[in-house]
Structure formats: structure tokens, C-alpha cells
Nucleic acid binder design. Structure first.
Length: 685
DNA sequence: GCTCCTCGAGTTCT
DNA sequence: CTCGAGGAGC
């Protein structure tokens, strides 16, 4: 045997630990004291985990003042402090499924060591809300004190504010216990946050980055009337101090009891057996996540038996009987490598942030739109900045905020170029409009390319295989200048292009040929007239019946079409008066593009769905959305894009989103795909 | 003149 | 999917 000297702590490690401590303290202050987090939770958790890991490997590093031994920061001074009778602890975190499995193993291990082995542990599973932890003290059944968690020992008195939350009972039902402290979470529903942020934006106040900050900011208002205007919710998930009553024997029974007392308890809870049960709950919650009206950042497992909980006890800052199993972060930090300006079909210039690739919510994000100049200015995003990127319930990533303190020296504010980055034409921004536009028109290659892509689009002329790559090549090589040129392409010239084999060339030619047979509304839509989208194109086609009537119509005639007003009429007339556009239309017809024509308003709705308005949402099984829309239209029905009182039916498929929710709100009839098919078949008009 | 309803346009990634 | 703005109805 040999004596092993105490492991030296390398200097680099010591310095890293010191830096981590300072950094964590700083963020704690920002988060708890200033209500203004500098970095996303996921980033904070990562720093915290790294420090914990270092301290575990080099125990000499652990000091009494290490932030790993504390729960949070100091309470803000302008609200009265409250000392919790029973401390409010935080939970250990896990991200991977293996963390849940390890948790279950550890629990069984410890219970066995404590002399009470259990084969399969029963757990109470709940959602982990993205809100603010709160303790409500009821004395003789009456709400007497409401306090935030603060640092876990001392929080802040926010009683007047909490009284304004409608779901918090001011008096418990049939409660004989002299003192009950209810622990739970205050949170804000997503739609209420959106509403609040709109108000903040309009009044020039700062917006809240997420529901938790909004809840915290709202609760800490010194004027409770402001809190009352912000719609907050409360869910109870446990008990602190309890006098004059015995706590039920299991955690799930405690929640039932709280519910009987009139406390709001989230219905999304269950008991689960063993690690498999935990993972099932986790996956289930993950799938339901987008449907919930509030944000959750994971789930919580607690050993259900209170007796077992007591045996397991606590480590320094968290109970051993509970685990917070988090979802992959929806927010991440990354760097803005560049801000590029894209040119759209109408010449609109859109600044886009090129980002260092970063994983958010399961995908790698490299781009995020910055919408327009005002938007960039509002967030003051600059090249070189470190930014918080979020992929919320929806799919499209957005830059939430800039981490100002990581801005490199000399970073320049973004300026919209005065000349189009593609064609060099002047850029104009009409007074009072948000978007800047390239004035180059079809002279600008970018606009020409976008116009071609629009023309070839699925909902327009529908040329399969004519994507961005091919259009780029066709335009750059000078083969194609307008949509009409597409119909003059031949095998030899196509195959001469890069990465265009014989097979794909003939496929494309075939698709172009197929597209010759179309309908008038698709043709009108394909032209890409400003302010004329699918619906307006359909209205025009139905009203005029043939192309000549449309070409000959003056503004007054156009105004007779429903849904067409002065702005749209002028835009159509302007487009059709342009010699170039007339030439392209003529050339297209000469090239054999054709459609059935009628003499005018003859084709009146006679279908069995005539007069009915439909809205499609979610993924249908047998039909694509486009097919369903076409068939409804063919039967005389109308397909609209948003749900309102005037909607007759909402057709909901899998993973239906906000439209379904709105339909329920308005009491609009919701049907499924099978029912739609029955209506189309006519068995049930 | 105000308000609600719809449509158009722009956008990400697999 | 969301925002902004055009259209229509009150």
C-alpha cells in the first residue's frame, strides 16, 4: 500500500471554477433581482452543471460561499421580505432519458440501503411550468400571505398582487387546519403574454422575453392594479408548512386534497411505475406540449410515498426524491455572423441574420429573419453580436434579444443599403411603410427569379422540379427571362446546364408540358400581380370567366368584383397596362397555355357545398391540403385561411394548431377528414 | 370613421 | 404561422 497524496487542483481548473462562480452570481442577480436574464436558462444550467462537476471532481474547490450551495439570489429590496417557515427548494435537473433511468435506480438503491427495498417505485408525475414559484399561506382557511421563492429561505411579500389572480382562492373550502402553506407556480398563458407584449410594444415599453419574466414582472408591480390587468394563473403542486392536519400518505393524495380545498391543480398529472412509467409520461407530455395554453420546460417526478420521501431526504440544495426532467432547450445562444439582405418577388428587402449553427428545439438553426429595418433597429442586432435564438411552439426561429455585454467593440448598427444588393437599383421606402423595396422591377435578377418561382409554384401553374437551383441557372445563363421562355426550352439546352442530366432535363420538360393545361384562376394567380393572391385570383376568374374580359376591364369594372377595392383595382390595371406584361401573356397563350373559358358570370355556384365556407388545419391523412381545397372549390365551397364566426366548417387533421382552438372558442362546427369526404361525395349535403 | 374579417407576403428546415 | 393592410359592414 502506498499513501496517495491529495490530488492537486490544476491552476487552470481553479481559475475556471472562480470564473464560473462569478458568472453564476452575476446571472443570479440579473435573473432574480433585476428580472432581466442575460442568458437563456439552458445556458445558465450548463454553467451551473460545469461548476458542480468541477467541485465534485476536486472537493477542495467547494467553498461555503459557492453558488452551488444556494438556491437563488437576494430578494429585491423594495418589497417586504418574508422568511419561509419551510424552505422552498429547487429540484435536481436531468436532460437525457438516461437521467430519468439513473434517478429511478438511485431511488431504489437508497431505499434498499435504508432497509425498505421496493421492487417498483411509484412516482407522481407533473408538468414543470415555466413560471414563478410561490408560497401561499392560509391561516384559518383565509389567504393571509403570498411570497415568492426568493433565495429559498427569504422571499418577497406579493400578497396584494396575488390576490388579483382569479384562480387563487381567497378562502379554502372546508379547511379546519389553522395553517396551510400551499406551494405552486404562478404563470402566464401564451396568448396573454402575446397580448401583453403588444400593449408593451405600442406604449414603447420593453417586451417580455418569455412567460416567466412576464409573470415575475407582473407580480412585482408595486401597484396591484397593474397586476390585475395582466392575466395570471396559478397551479398548486405541494405543501409547505401544515398545522392541525396530517398530510396524506402520498404526494398524489396531497394534490387531490388541495383540489378539494379549492386550489387549482393541473389536470395533466399521473402516477407512474418505475423508469418505464416515467419515460412514458415524459414523452406524452412532450407530445402534448404545443397543445397546452402555457409553456412548460419539462416534467417533474416525485416519489409518491411520503414515507419513502422522508427516508430519501435531501442533499444540500435539493430533495433526493424528486427530479426535474427537462425538454431540450427551445432557446439557445449563438453569434450573428452576418446580416444579409434578401430581395423578394415584389422587391421587398428583407434582412436575414446568418447565425453560427446552433441546435434549438431539435433542429439546427442557421438563419433567422429580421423582418425589416425597424425590427432590426428595435432589437439593435449587429454583426458579431451574441443573440438569444428561440424556436417557440411554431417552427420559425426568431432572434429574441441581444446579449449586449458580449457585443464586440466596434460593432456597427445595421443600415439598410441604399442600392439593391442584387441589381444596384435604387431602394425606396414609402413614408409610413415598414418595408424597403428595390425599384429595379423585373430588371432585377432576384425579382425575376422569384417571379418565376411563384409562376411555377404548386398553387399556381404547378411545374414540378422547377426549384430555386434550376431557376438560378436558367436566369443566370440567360436562357430564361420571362415565364414564356420556359415553354421554349429544349432538351439540348437544358442538359447543357450544371448538374442537369438527361433524365432530369426530360422530367422537367415533361412537367412544363403538363403545366400547359391549367385553369384561369391559377393562371391569374401565377402572373404575380401585386395584391392578387389565390383568393383574389379565384374571385377574378369567377367574375370574368375569360381572360379577354379581364384584360379589357377598367378600374370601375374591377371594383364590381367582391373583395376588390381601389388599391387592388389600381394594381391590377397597372400590371395589365405594362407592355411587357401583355407580351408575356400573349406569348404564354401562343406557347399553348390554355384553360376552359366561359362567357362571364355564367359559372355560378351550383355545387352541393355552395355557400359554405371551410377552413383547413392540421395534416389530413388521405388528401393533401391543396387537394382538399381543390375538391371543396370544385363542389362550390369556399376555402378560407382564417377562422371566424362566418366559417361554416373547420376540417381538422392531425396536429391541428391554433385554428382548431379558435374554432372551439367561436363554437364553429369541427369535422374530420372522413366527414369532409362524405360531404364531397354528396351522401350528406 | 371605426372595427372586424380576410387576404397577401415573407420565412425555416427536412 | 404571423403580421400588416385592404375591404366591407356598421
Amino acid at each position: 500500500m502506498e499513501r496517495v497524496s491529495k490530488a492537486e487542483v490544476p491552476e487552470a481548473v481553479r481559475q475556471r471554477a472562480q470564473w464560473l462562480r462569478a458568472e453564476i452570481e452575476r446571472h443570479n442577480t440579473a435573473y432574480y433581482v433585476q428580472d432581466a436574464p442575460l442568458i437563456p436558462d439552458s445556458e445558465f444550467d450548463r454553467l451551473f452543471a460545469e461548476l458542480q462537476d468541477l467541485e465534485a471532481r476536486y472537493p477542495q474547490l467547494a467553498s461555503v460561499d459557492s453558488p452551488t450551495l444556494r438556491v437563488g439570489g437576494a430578494p429585491r429590496s423594495d418589497l417586504p421580505p418574508v422568511r419561509h417557515a419551510v424552505p422552498m427548494l429547487s429540484l435536481n435537473n436531468g436532460l437525457a432519458e438516461s437521467d430519468a433511468i439513473a434517478f429511478d435506480e438511485r431511488v431504489r438503491d437508497l431505499l434498499a440501503k435504508a432497509g425498505e427495498p421496493v421492487e417498483t417505485v411509484t412516482y407522481a408525475c407533473e408538468l414543470k411550468f415555466d413560471g414563478l414559484a410561490m408560497s401561499l399561506r392560509y391561516v384559518d382557511g383565509v389567504l393571509e400571505l403570498a411570497a415568492t421563492r426568493g433565495d429559498g429561505t427569504v422571499g418577497e411579500d406579493v400578497t396584494p398582487n396575488v390576490r388579483t389572480i382569479r384562480s387563487v382562492p381567497l378562502r379554502l373550502k372546508d379547511c379546519r387546519a389553522p395553517v396551510v402553506e400551499v406551494r405552486g407556480e404562478v404563470l402566464m398563458y401564451r396568448r396573454d403574454l402575446d397580448r401583453l407584449n403588444r400593449v408593451q410594444r405600442e406604449s414603447g415599453e420593453k417586451e417580455f422575453a418569455n412567460p416567466r419574466n412576464a409573470a415575475a414582472g407582473s407580480l412585482r408591480q408595486l401597484d396591484a392594479r397593474i397586476t390585475a390587468r395582466r392575466r395570471l394563473h396559478f397551479f398548486a403542486y405541494g405543501i409547505g408548512q401544515l398545522q392541525g392536519a396530517t398530510e396524506p400518505a402520498t404526494h398524489s393524495a396531497t394534490l387531490d386534497w388541495l383540489q378539494q380545498l379549492g386550489m387549482p391543480v393541473c389536470e395533466e398529472r399521473a402516477t407512474a411505475s418505475g423508469a418505464d412509467g416515467l419515460l412514458e409520461f415524459y414523452r406524452n407530455a412532450g407530445a402534448r406540449r404545443a397543445d397546452l395554453p402555457y409553456d412548460i420546460d419539462g416534467v417533474v417526478y416525485k416519489v409518491d410515498s411520503l414515507r419513502a420521501q422522508r427516508l430519501l431526504g435531501f442533499v444540500s440544495r435539493a430533495p433526493r426524491f424528486a427530479l426535474a426532467h427537462k425538454f431540450p432547450p427551445q432557446e439557445a445562444l449563438t453569434q450573428v455572423l452576418d446580416i444579409e439582405v434578401q430581395v423578394g418577388r415584389t422587391g421587398a428587402l428583407t434582412p436575414v441574420a446568418r447565425l453560427a449553427p446552433v441546435a434549438v428545439g431539435g433542429v439546427t438553426v442557421t438563419n433567422a429573419t429580421l423582418h425589416n429595418e425597424q425590427e432590426v433597429a428595435r432589437r439593435d442586432v449587429r454583426v458579431g453580436d451574441t443573440v438569444i435564438v428561440r424556436r417557440a411552439g411554431d417552427v420559425i426561429p426568431e432572434v429574441v434579444a441581444v446579449v449586449l455585454e458580449r457585443r464586440p467593440a466596434g460593432a456597427q448598427p445595421f443600415r439598410m443599403p441604399e442600392r439593391c444588393p442584387v441589381c444596384g437599383s435604387a431602394v425606396e421606402r414609402p413614408e409610413q411603410e415598414a418595408v424597403s423595396r428595390c425599384t429595379g422591377g423585373l430588371f432585377c435578377p432576384a425579382q425575376r427569379k422569384q417571379a418565376l418561382l411563384h409562376f411555377a409554384g404548386r398553387r399556381a401553374i404547378d411545374i414540378d422540379g422547377l426549384g430555386e437551383r434550376v431557376v438560378d441557372q436558367l436566369v443566370d445563363s440567360g436562357l430564361v427571362r420571362s415565364a414564356a421562355d420556359l415553354y421554349r426550352l429544349d432538351q439540348a439546352r437544358l442538359a447543357a446546364l450544371d448538374r442537369m442530366g438527361h433524365k432530369s432535363a426530360s422530367n422537367l420538360l415533361e412537367a412544363i408540358d403538363r403545366s400547359r393545361g391549367t385553369t384561369l384562376d391559377r393562371f391569374i394567380f401565377a402572373l404575380g400581380i401585386r395584391h392578387v393572391g389565390e383568393a383574389t385570383a379565384q374571385a377574378l376568374a369567377a367574375h370574368f370567366g375569360n381572360l379577354k374580359a379581364l384584360l379589357d376591364a377598367d378600374e370601375t369594372r374591377l371594383l364590381e368584383v367582391s373583395d376588390i377595392g381601389p388599391v387592388v383595382a389600381r394594381s391590377i390595371r397597372h400590371f395589365l397596362d405594362e407592355a411587357h406584361n401583355r407580351e408575356v401573356i400573349t406569348a404564354l397563350r401562343k406557347a399553348g397555355v390554355h384553360w376552359p373559358e366561359t362567357s362571364g358570370a355564367a359559372a355560378r355556384d351550383r355545387g352541393r357545398l355552395s355557400g359554405r365556407t371551410f377552413v383547413l388545419t392540421g395534416t389530413l391523412e388521405g388528401l393533401t391540403r391543396t387537394e382538399a381545397a381543390d375538391r371543396i372549390a370544385a363542389a362550390g365551397g369556399r376555402v378560407s385561411s382564417s377562422v371566424s364566426k362566418k366559417t361554416d366548417f373547420v376540417v381538422a387533421g392531425e396536429e391541428a394548431g391554433t385554428k382548431l382552438a379558435r374554432a372551439r372558442e367561436l363554437g364553429v362546427h369541427v369535422i374530420d377528414e372522413a366527414e369532409l369526404l362524405r360531404m364531397l361525395d354528396g351522401s350528406n349535403p
